[in-house]
């Protein structure tokens, strides 16, 4: 009798536990992605505020890892390349972090003139992290004398995978039909399978309040309509703050400073 009861109890606990784990897992999936508002209306913004700041890295800065170039050395190994998943500049500033407003529903429109280019130069994607408005056209350049293939991973939300070869004869390729992201999501991985080390990220976004930190770790979000927002970030290895976004209050015409300090996400 007793053993049976224990067994039941154990079973019950196990069930509960696995439920928690499952639920956790589910969340975990979203944890690595950006968070978008349900809807966004673009219009003109009068007297918007500005959010800026610096993203810093906290922790021991790992040594720069030189990529092993195992092929096309003549083209690809002319410039030494390093792993770009964690680029820390002087003063521990962190490059390639997306900082954005999570819950903005109304605001400015995208900059129509902005050039959306993903270059492949010296067998490296440039930029490493890129913001692409939903529905926009991305121009992929091939500045190398080598064949690449642009492999943008598919996602669950109807953004099917794109994988197009870009021969060295084709300097410019507009990813129009395939490249139009149908839904906001990301960032998604971009790879060149031919040169396995080439990697980049693209975020399909529905509104323009996204910024990627530069070499100095700086970001700026301009022309933000006054209001209270959740400020989020994403970084390739440091993850997101989706669980505890920073609340910011933007005053009309005001300027807000918000710095972040990121640590390497603990891998499970």
């Amino acid at each position: 009798m007793k053993t049976k009861m224990f067994a039941y109890l154990a079973l019950l606990i196990a069930c509960g536990f696995s439920l928690i784990v499952l639920a956790d897992n589910h969340e975990e999936e979203d944890m690595n992605k950006l968070v978008f508002p349900k809807a966004y209306t673009a219009g003109s913004v009068a007297n918007g505020g500005k959010i800026s700041g610096v993203v810093k890295f906290d922790g021991e800065v790992p040594e720069k890892k030189k990529l092993v170039i195992n092929k096309d050395q003549a083209v690809c190994d002319a410039v030494p390349k390093f792993d770009e998943s964690l680029v820390v500049g002087d003063g521990n500033v962190l490059k390639n972090t997306i900082v954005y407003l999570m819950d903005i529903t109304k605001g400015k429109d995208f900059d129509k003139d902005a050039k959306l280019e993903l270059d492949q130069k010296d067998c490296r994607f440039d930029p490493h992290v890129q913001i692409v408005p939903v529905g926009a056209v991305l121009t992929v350049l091939n500045s190398d004398k080598a064949t690449h293939n642009v492999h943008i991973f598919g996602t669950k939300k109807n953004n099917t995978s794109v994988n197009k070869q870009q021969p060295k004869t084709r300097k410019k390729m507009r990813l129009s039909r395939e490249g139009v992201a149908k839904a906001p999501e990301g960032p998604v991985e971009v790879k060149c399978d031919i040169h396995g080390w080439m990697k980049a990220w693209i975020a399909y976004v529905p509104h323009p309040y996204f910024a990627v930190t530069n070499e100095k770790g700086e970001f700026t979000l301009e022309n933000v309509p006054p209001g209270t927002y959740k400020l989020g970030y994403w970084h390739e290895v440091c993850g997101t703050n989706n669980k505890e976004p920073v609340a910011v209050k933007v005053e009309a015409g005001g300027e807000l400073k918000q710095d972040f300090t990121l640590k390497i996400k603990e891998s499970k």
Binding site: P167, K168, T169
Partner: peptide, 15 residues
């Protein structure tokens, strides 16, 4: 192409 794999949709290099 073979979706999801490394096999891309080919573009004529001498289009």
């Amino acid at each position: 192409g073979i979706a999801g794999s490394a096999m891309p949709m080919f573009e004529d290099p001498a289009f």
